[in-house]
Design a protein around this nucleic acid. Structure first.
Length: 682
DNA sequence: GAGCACTGC
């Protein structure tokens, strides 16, 4: 049995008055450290109360007295049973409650579609992406006296960028206080980052030191519930099968307590649930029933909520989950965790421009986090479906997102923040040079950067402000020339849902497909998505019932409305006129419709020329370079239709094949017409 | 004829 490190300790923070939280006794020393050191790294357990208590300590100690405010960027999912956007709001609500104020007054929050703050707000909870956006208008974030970056060890791109910005801001605003909350393993990395000079030359000198003039580390320990870690004696060939048999071993041999099983994706989860249901029929009467439940992001909200319900008396709940339950969603009552040891990780190949989604061994940090899910209320057990030897060979952490992603929007944002030399930006972990140059090339070809790699105006700066990826931003901004802005707003909103438009239960695939055919447009997926949205708004009256009848994801459709409205506000701010009367005119003639459709296809080509492909006689596609075999994704209308040239929204390699998604037919000569330089070079 | 882990503006 291996040690569990520190992540195994949990306390049920939600049910304790704040004075009893372990953090309360650290109050004085925390305030002293923040006063003394510009940067404080806080190592704290889930439930240590750091995200709710520290901002209150600071406020009471006078950090807002000169009209400045405290900002807390959040991924607060750990204290509630909600995905993090919702969680951010509930934690803000909880702090407001503790302070005794109305939400939006002294304590407020700001997330993408909701700004609940006012001129009296002193403590503001917000997402890190939103704080970066604030820096576009206020580069020194001068409103803030303290900024706390919570759960920084998750290392999202926006967290990494924010930390780089804060380090830069600190040079011009030495009075700014930065608090970084982190898991144990990564604390040293943050310490080194803030201690070293921008050129990294002092790193060696800092070895072994835990404190400098600038940075300090403080650890807030919580009470520990022990978790037994069990390994396999020999590796398994089929972890889904092994997970199912482990569920039955636990059920027949262990005391009460629900089970959480980590698998990698929907298919595995559906299979495992079927297998449990089958085998449960053979259970003898001595054991209570099992209730297997799925949990992954693609489920509707109601389906996700089942996992939080208490099972009937005597029934054992078994939740089969993706990585969503590792950090974003917390389920109470879990005593047993089964960890398959794998996760699907996204990576981006700058040479081919293709994203891959590959099943990869998890890191030790993930393994520890997963195990910790077993012991929130009492001692638990974690069954690792791999050997102890395999565990020892796992990497400490996975590479951060910024080193394995398409950086086009990140680079564009940095440029808009006034960081001209993006390659020399002080990254926590520098991305590979190929990722940077690929991003710069794309932004240049889109016209967002000029030949000196300077941000262009107004095109580049507007693209940076729009909350969609650069290719879609360019498409939107060229839409007025093609007289299709209203339609393109809808298409931008629908494509940014990322494939979650359609919804069906296990075994309902065919019915979903026939629903989808009712909205089909000859020209391809983008026009089909436009039909879906327009029908939802008009005939469907924006109702959930319409979505259920047509196998649409209601949550996604309402989200599309919000995104569309937000994009529209941005364009209005740019003084771009949007004519909404044409698009809702259902009585237009067939000729008008096909002309409109052609304009939309041309407009899409003006932004997505780099995502062009040609169909081969065998029905597969080749991209412009010709190298890669691309398949229309089975969810695409073009999956079994003929085409010549097409553009696509997204390309992704999963398993053996490379799929393109959201595909629309175009004409070859449009590519040369709208991207002459790009296609001259190719 | 076969399938997208998860956030976020």
């Amino acid at each position: 049995m291996a040690d569990l490190d520190l992540d195994s300790s949990f306390i049920p923070a939600l049910h304790k008055p704040s004075a009893l939280l372990p953090i309360a006794k650290h109050r004085e020393s925390l305030l002293y450290l923040v006063e003394t050191y510009p940067v404080t790294i806080v190592i704290g357990q889930t439930g240590s109360g750091k995200s709710t208590q520290i901002p209150q300590f600071l406020e009471k100690a006078g950090w807002c007295s000169d009209g400045k405010i405290i900002g807390v960027t959040q991924s607060l999912a750990d204290v509630t049973c909600q995905p993090r956007r919702v969680a951010a709001t509930t934690v803000a609500l909880r702090v407001a409650d503790e302070v005794g104020c109305e939400i939006g007054k002294e304590v407020g929050y700001s997330i993408r579609f909701e700004d609940v703050t006012s001129s009296s707000t002193k403590v503001k909870f917000l997402t890190d992406a939103l704080l970066i956006r604030e820096a576009l208008a206020d580069p020194l974030l001068s409103r803030y006296s303290v900024i706390m970056v919570d759960e920084a060890h998750e290392r999202s791109i926006s967290t990494d960028i924010l930390l780089g910005l804060l380090k830069k801001i600190r040079k011009k605003r030495p009075e700014l206080r930065i608090i970084v909350s982190s898991a144990t393993i990564q604390a040293e990395e943050f310490f080194d980052f803030f201690t070293r000079g921008s050129g990294q030359e002092t790193q060696k000198e800092q070895e072994g030191r835990r404190s400098s003039d600038i940075v300090t580390i403080v650890s807030l320990e919580g009470r520990t519930y022990p978790i037994d870690i069990l390994y396999l004696e020999s590796p398994t060939e089929d972890y889904v099968d092994k997970a199912v048999s482990t569920v039955f071993d636990i059920h027949t041999q262990e005391g009460e307590g629900d089970i959480l099983v980590f698998l990698t994706g929907r298919e595995e989860i559906d299979n495992a649930i079927r297998a449990v249901a089958d085998r449960a029929l053979q259970l003898d009467g001595r054991h209570g029933p099992l209730q297997p439940l799925p949990l992954y992001a693609g489920l509707s909200t109601e389906q996700q909520m089942y996992v939080f319900d208490k099972p009937p008396e005597g029934t054992r709940k078994v939740v089969f989950s993706t990585n969503i339950a590792e950090a974003s969603v917390t389920i109470d009552g879990i005593v047993h965790v089964i960890d398959c040891g794998f996760v699907k990780l996204r990576a981006y190949n700058p040479k081919t421009g293709i994203e891959t989604l590959t099943t990869t061994p998890i890191s030790k940090a993930s393994a520890s986090q997963r195990a910790g899910r077993a012991g929130r209320t009492k001692a638990g057990k974690c069954y690792r479906l791999y050997t102890e030897d395999a565990y020892q060979k796992l990497p400490e952490t996975n590479p951060p997102e910024i080193q394995r992603s398409n950086l086009a929007s990140t680079v564009l944002q940095l440029k808009a923040l006034g960081i001209d030399n993006v390659v020399r930006f002080d990254f926590l972990s520098a991305p590979p040079a190929e990722l940077m140059s690929k991003a710069l090339e794309l932004l240049y070809s889109l016209g967002a950067l000029d030949e000196y790699a300077k941000l262009t105006h107004p095109l580049g700066s507007r693209m940076a402000e729009l909350a969609v990826e650069p290719m879609m931003a360019k498409t939107l901004l060229s839409a007025p020339q093609f007289n299709c802005l209203s339609e393109m707003l809808t298409i931008a909103a629908m494509t940014s849902l990322g494939g979650n438009v359609w919804f069906y239960h296990d075994g309902e695939r065919n019915r979903m497909e026939s629903s989808r055919r009712k909205f089909a447009a000859e020209e391809g997926d983008h026009l089909t998505l436009l039909n879906v949205y327009q029908t939802f708004i008009t005939k469907g009256k924006k109702e959930a019932r319409f979505c259920h009848e047509h196998h649409l994801n209601y949550k996604s459709m309402t989200r599309a409305m919000s995104i569309r409205a937000q994009l529209k506000r941005y364009l209005e701010r740019f003084n771009i006129k949007i004519d909404e009367t044409l698009s809702s005119n259902q009585a237009s003639s067939a000729v008008d419709n096909s002309r409109k459709a052609e304009n939309i296809r041309r407009c899409l080509t003006s932004g997505y020329f780099a995502h062009a492909a040609r169909m081969q006689p065998d029905g597969t596609y080749r991209n412009v370079e010709g190298g890669t075999v691309l398949h229309a994704h089975p969810n695409s209308l073009m999956f079994n239709r003929k085409a010549d040239w097409v553009i696509f929204h997204e390309v992704m390699e999963t398993g053996e094949k490379t799929y393109i998604r959201d595909i629309t037919k175009i004409e070859k000569n449009w590519l040369v017409e709208y991207a002459p330089e790009f296609y001259k070079l190719s």
